[in-house]
Design a binder for these strands. Structure first.
Lengths: 332, 332
DNA sequence: ATGAAAGCGCTAACAA
DNA sequence: TTGTTAGCGCTTTCAT
């Protein structure tokens, strides 16, 4: 595998000229450029990124950290990032925190050693200590936070309006005629789940229909226990006709429980979930849900990162994406 | 962020000695080592991997290519790889081929530019031209193939015994009393799908029960069309009592179709799939399936890679993992 | 056990 | 438009 030295030798040009062809090739005459390119082709030249990085101080690498890669949401984001970054000359390297602060920090340190030029990260559920992140921010390596954002000042972030998403879902149920709603809620300590719960309530309070009843329950994907909870909820209010689940997995779980209880969806009860995971399209009936625009989130985050690389003095930006209602068979 | 130069200055030692502490530290007196380590701590020393890589020719990076990261199987493999590699001093970088030969080659080229020391790859469904892979093999960069393996001589590979997995699944259906089987088959051009198809047939041929009927169909997750195919298959043989799907997604799809046709699972028809994706545990009924030992596959592949890095003249190895039958509600 | 010095492949002043 | 040259931060012979 040849380097620019061989090309220089073959073409009779200097190292600098050859280098320029691959960088600021406008400073080189077309004829020379041609010659170099041909030689490069012939010798199967592969630029040595390490050497370029060392010399220029630019690694051309962006680091991405997500809690888990096996997750339609995060992998969708990664795809969005790839889409933007792919033809920018940057490479991306992906690490998983597995929801562990320790692994997250390991990944960040490993990024620093690799001299990544920018970091895109969705922080783990467990992370409470942001000192390393703060240190990186101070060191002027651009950091873009997405979805799960720490409570820090002056940071770049791309998030989804979860409150708005819950309102969309709840209003949709109401529009479909539901007047006795149940929200299957997530752990309120996770801020996005709490926002979805609030959105559910706010949508009902703000509705022009004043006769809407609702209750809020928590399920745990434990069939025996959950079926009891659901049964009890239905016993307490036999007219329940709409369910909004805070996530797709739990929505599918609820759908299965409803079938077990011989409740037909959507005829007797309409069901909507949150996330637009791929399997919501594979169930019977297909589950209505809220799309999180994950690809767009990745694209925005990547664009922000690239902007920050181009202009070091840019002000931190906060982008909030609007979720999208996906109507499928479970509500219509 | 300090370098070894600063450490050398502070400690009054030479660059060489400091460098040795971080590499072959046994060649350094304990006292000196202590001093260097303390100074490193104090200065928050971060080794510059780029520089080390450039000089030593060792990047300490392994490249991993999978078709898709949002896939229970491949992300399980990645986790297995991470587990082994994490405390070996190597970094891993992950790329997705999205089942495209072009993207796969882009990823490989980008790995070569980054001077990765080894490559772990599961080739895309679309890949038919192995010239780049062959070129890499010739260049002595170790390549470990896993799961989807090209038909080349003398390569390192870790695969699952798909034929055996299909036999396990089919025998399980027969053991449960099924005598009229249907196999939902995948594209036979993908060798693992073809092996599953053959395993299905072989299990029936080798069974001590001589009265087993079977048919083989293909579905495409297109509800309208697939329901017709399934209906026709049932019409042709109304006694169908067992279905073996080549994958979990299509198995779930079939489960839904069966429900639509008012066929109860497992009472009338028993259903088993292949893959042990997480959602097979979330359906109603839960789907019996074949586990692919993905984490173990990743671990074996990573170990093979590391072995190849340590000893360049090692002979290529072929590891075949045994799949595991997971019995759930859909067959019992 | 430690040090001096060369150089990995490339970029970027500066010079021509 | 092209060439000369001095490093980027580290590893690694070869001395000592």
């Amino acid at each position: 595998m040849a380097g620019i030295k061989e090309i220089a030798k073959i073409t009779g040009l200097s190292l600098a000229t050859v280098s320029r062809v691959f960088n600021e090739s406008h400073l080189v005459s077309p004829k020379t450029r041609e010659k170099v390119l041909r030689a490069a082709e012939e010798l199967d030249y592969q630029p040595n990124i390490m050497a370029a990085a060392l010399r220029s101080g630019k690694s051309k690498i962006l680091g991405v950290i997500v809690p888990e890669v096996n997750n339609f949401f995060f992998s969708g984001i990664i795809n969005g990032i790839e889409k933007i970054v792919s033809d920018s000359g940057y490479n991306i390297i992906i690490s998983q925190s597995h929801e562990s602060q320790e692994k997250e920090n390991e990944a960040l340190n490993s990024f620093l050693k690799l001299k990544v030029e920018g970091i895109l990260i969705s922080i783990s559920k467990e992370t409470t200590d942001f000192s390393l992140v703060q240190k990186i921010l101070d060191s002027k390596v651009p950091v873009i936070f997405f979805d799960r954002v720490p409570n820090l000042e002056h940071i770049n972030s791309v998030t989804l309006d979860d409150h708005r998403g819950a309102i969309l879902a709840t209003e949709h149920l109401i529009d479909q005629g539901c007047r006795n709603l149940v929200h299957i809620a997530g752990d309120p300590k996770v801020s996005i789940f709490d926002k979805r719960r609030k959105g559910f309530i706010d949508a009902i309070l703000k509705s022009r229909h004043k006769n809407i009843k609702y209750s809020i329950i928590e399920l745990n994907a434990d069939v025996q226990n959950d079926i009891g909870i659901l049964q009890k909820t239905f016993d307490a209010n036999s007219n329940i006709d709409g369910v909004f689940a805070f996530g797709d997995e739990i929505g599918l779980h609820a759908l299965n429980l409803l079938k077990t209880l011989d409740v037909s969806v959507p005829e007797q009860v309409k069901l909507i979930a949150f996330g637009n995971a791929d399997f919501t399209n594979l169930t019977e009936p297909k589950i209505s849900t809220i799309d999180q625009e994950c690809s767009q989130m990745g694209e925005l985050a990547a664009n922000l990162a690239i902007k920050n690389l181009q202009d070091k003095n840019i002000n931190p930006q906060t982008k909030v994406l609007l979720p999208r209602l996906i109507v499928r068979d479970s509500t219509s």
